[in-house]
Simulated scan of single mutants.
Amino acid sequence: MSTNPYHSLLEHLANCHDSTDIEVLFRALLTDKEQHEIANRIRIFDLLECGATQRDIAEQLGVGIATVSRGAKAMQSHDVSALLATHRQGS
């Protein structure tokens, strides 16, 4: 097990066998608000990948345009498009 807290978290997530295990871990680690914010970030990524405008995303999710803009910037700087495409194919 890693001594780096972030790497330890990643190892624990990698050891989860299904989404139920991940949900249990997230409920133990994160507040309801934190879970909601992470879910919104993923939704922002998904909607951007589908071609939705930032303004439409903000309205659909009930968040500020700045929240969507931060999500778009994070998506670009971390190049998660390939990961999202893989997830969609597996769904």
Rank of each mutant, 00 (worst) to 15 (best):
T31G: 02
T31P: 04
D32P: 07
D32A: 15
D32Y: 01
H36P: 00
I38P: 01
I38S: 06
A39T: 13
R41L: 13
R41D: 05
R41F: 03
R41E: 10
I42E: 08
R43D: 12
R43C: 09
R43A: 14
I44T: 01
I44V: 15
F45V: 01
F45S: 04
D46Q: 13
D46L: 09
D46H: 08
L47D: 05
L48E: 07
G51R: 06
G51W: 00
G51L: 04
A52F: 11
A52S: 10
T53I: 06
T53D: 01
T53E: 03
Q54F: 04
Q54W: 00
R55A: 15
R55N: 12
R55Q: 12
D56Y: 03
A58V: 05
Q60M: 11
Q60V: 01
Q60Y: 09
Q60H: 08
L61V: 02
L61Y: 00
G62L: 00
G62R: 05
V63R: 06
V63F: 02
T67V: 13
V68W: 01
S69C: 09
G71F: 03
A72N: 12
A72L: 11
K73H: 12
A74P: 01
A74D: 14
S77C: 12
S77T: 15
H78G: 10
H78M: 10
D79A: 14
D79T: 10
A82E: 12
L83S: 13
L83P: 00
L83F: 13
L84W: 08
L84I: 14
A85S: 13
T86A: 10
T86M: 10
T86K: 12
T86L: 14
